[in-house]
Structure formats: structure tokens, C-alpha cells
Design a protein around this nucleic acid. Sequence first.
DNA 1: TCAGATTTCCACCATATGGTGGAGATTGGG
DNA 2: CCCAATCTCCACCATATGGTGGAAATCTGA
Lengths: 221, 221
Amino acid sequence: MHCRSARYAPAVASDTDAVAVGYAKGRATKDTIVARAAESFAQRGFHGTTLRGIAREAGVDHSTLVHHFGDKTALLLAVLDWYDRMHLTEELPDASEMPASVPVTQLVDGLVATARRNREAPGLVQLLSTLSAEAGEADHPARPFLQQRQHQLRDILAGAIRAQRVAGAVDEDGTTPEQAAAVVVASWEGLQVYDALHPDEIDVPALLERELRRVLGVAAS
Amino acid sequence: MHCRSARYAPAVASDTDAVAVGYAKGRATKDTIVARAAESFAQRGFHGTTLRGIAREAGVDHSTLVHHFGDKTALLLAVLDWYDRMHLTEELPDASEMPASVPVTQLVDGLVATARRNREAPGLVQLLSTLSAEAGEADHPARPFLQQRQHQLRDILAGAIRAQRVAGAVDEDGTTPEQAAAVVVASWEGLQVYDALHPDEIDVPALLERELRRVLGVAAS
DNA sequence: TCAGATTTCCACCATATGGTGGAGATTGGG
DNA sequence: CCCAATCTCCACCATATGGTGGAAATCTGA
């Protein structure tokens, strides 16, 4: 009987502070597997990634991955969960807060900082980009995760945009705040893909900042 | 000895009007293969697509694909070439023309029409999106094609933007026309991906039109 | 019509895939 | 220090993959 201890988080309930499970060695192995899996999913997508390929990179047998995560889909979800816990949660105003409670300049700075940091981790950017494109397919395993993730970012932005419009800092343009925010999110993604395809041709953080300032009616610092 | 008659176009030299090669039946088969291959590449990406899967959809043996196209990569390039010939070339001002020679309103209308038509062919959009994201990897087989393709569109747009700026229809904003054009191209791509992931949430053609009019300084019709 | 070119399929190959089952080594709380 | 829990690998499986070689059917220009 297999252990199938994989704690494939439901993509929303974070178990960061749960008691450590298993032995230290096993947890370490799981971490390196997730890291290598992220690279592979990024470069080859879900369908193009093989358990054996990841295992080779991680220096373990492929059956070890199965032991730790159950199956390929669960591994993908573990990668996404790991990415999320590492890159978004920590530096974005919590979505549960009142949207307008965060100063817009702080929002802009936070997002631009994220974009700037993404430049140092092209693999992770490509992970989400590749999966986002693949997940246009209706039953892609990463689809719910990506939908929820993009909506979370969109809603934060939409809240800020709405607040700025009410305050008269930026004028209505016929779009809802949600639509305007969705455009920013989509453009950001597109800029990252474009940047990967045409290195050093555009400056993603700078262009994102322009877009954010325009849509939020915030003058350059 | 295999025939290997595949005319894998070098992605730029179009042989549209070359003399027909092979028999009519063979050409018809090739066409349906390309169509089914496009769907598969769109839904599963390059790595996730199998020759046998395409063959099954096309109602032929998988070795027939090999006979006609040589190998999987050549088939991908054939699909891209076909897509290009069908969707971009015919309704965009030829890149070889003087950029400013085309009225900007016509350019806007043409691109918006393309975006509107893309809505009817989500598979093809996803094909290019998935490949673009995958092709962030340096040695992806579709990379040169996609780079050249996006640059072509960018250059057309950049020419129009430059002309409009010279004419004073839109003011300088510190970016080069190429950069401004690249942002539009990137945003367009991003909007399409976002749309596939969140059906009926945004209106891609309308948003593209807004973006184009803003960057080109063209009032709404 | 008919012969050469072309198309198509079948059988086959080496390799790779995700996943299973179990044996042996390692770990660490009691 | 011990022993159950955990970890890791090996051998294996059914299936699928891209690609080859050849034989039969089909097509078409002369």
C-alpha cells in the first residue's frame, strides 16, 4: 500500500504553519523535486513535462516523485501552491483587506517591485505564462488555480481603481473598474511573454508602472 | 527511400503561387492534416502533441504525416506557415510597403477585424499563445518564427505611430515608436490569453481598439 | 492505356511514459 | 537504543511515442 501523503492543498487553504509532516530528509527531497518540477513545467508545459525528467534533474528515481506526490497532476498543483506561497502572498496587500485601505502608491510600488523581481526569475514567469496559455483548454489541471489567482490580483486592482475614480483622481472612461483592472493584468502577462521572446527589447517593470499610474491616476514619483 | 517532399517554407519565403506539387489527393490530405495539427498544437502545445493523435483526427495513419512533412517539427512549421498565410498576410498592409502610406484608420480597422475574427477561432489563438509562452525557451523550434512574426506586426505599428507623432496627432511620451508598438502587441497577446482563461469577461477587439486609438491618436469613429 | 510518380497503410522498432509493488536502508520519537 | 514510520531505489508493467521500411493501391501526364 502506498502512503500517498501528498497534501495537495485545495489551492486556497494554506497550511503554511501546519505541523511538519514526515522526516526532515523527505521534506528536503520534496522541496528540490518541486523546484525542478517548476523548471520543467515552465519550459515544457504540463503535457510536455515527464516525471522521469524531473526525477533526473532532482537526482532521484521517478518513483520517488510518485511516492511523495501521488501523481503528475498533484505535483503540478504542489508546484503552483509553492509558487504562490513564495511569490504573491508575502508582498501584496491581503485580498481580504478593504481594497481602498491600501494607499495606491504603495500598491503601485509593490506590483512594480514584483515585476522587477520576476526579471530575476524568468523560469517562474515562464511557468505561469506557459500554464496560463495551456489552461485556455477547459479541463487543464491548472485552470482553476490560474483563474483564481488572476482574479485575486484583478480584484485588488479593481478596488484601487474604483477608489481613485470616486476620489476624482482619474476620470471614468466607460469601463468598469474590473474591466480596466483585467486589462492591466492581461497586459502584464503579455509583456512578460513578449520579453521572454525578445530579450532586452522592452522594460517590463517600467512599462507596467506607466500602465498602473495611468489607470490609477497617480503621477510619477 | 522516403520522398520527404515537404516544402517546409523558411518562414519568410512564401510559395503561395508556386506550381502545385504532387497529386490533388495528396494535397487535400496535407490540408486536413495541417488543420487537425493546428487544433492539437493549440490545445496541447508542441511537446504535448502526438503525431498519432493528429493522424487519428485526420483519419489517416500516423506514418502518412511523416511521409508528407518529414517530422514533427516540420509539421509545426507547416502549421504556422499556413496560419500566417491565412490570417495575417491577407488583410494586413504588406510589411514591405512604406509604413506611413497606409491610412491609420485603415490599419486600426484591419487589426480590430483580425481580433474580431480571432474570437471565432479560439483554437488558433491558443496555438500561438501556447507556442509563444513555450518559446520563451531559447531553443524552441517555433521561436524564430514567432519572433519574426511579432516583429513584423510591431514594425507596421511602429511606423504608423512614428508617422502620427511626426504629424503631431499624438504627443511624444518618452518611448520610441518601437517600444510603444511592442507594448500594444504584447497587450494584445495577453488579452487573448486572459480571455481564454476567463470566458466572456473582457471584449478583446474593443479593448484592442481603445489601445490602438490611444497610441495612434485616432478619435473613435 | 500505361508506366512512373505518388499516396497510403501495415508491421515493426527502440525508446519513453506514468504508474505499481516490494525490498532494503534510513530516520527519529519513546 | 530500538522499532515503527518513513524514505528510496530497483525491477517491472502496459501503453504510447516518433520514426523506418516496404508493399500495395492510386493517380495522372504523355
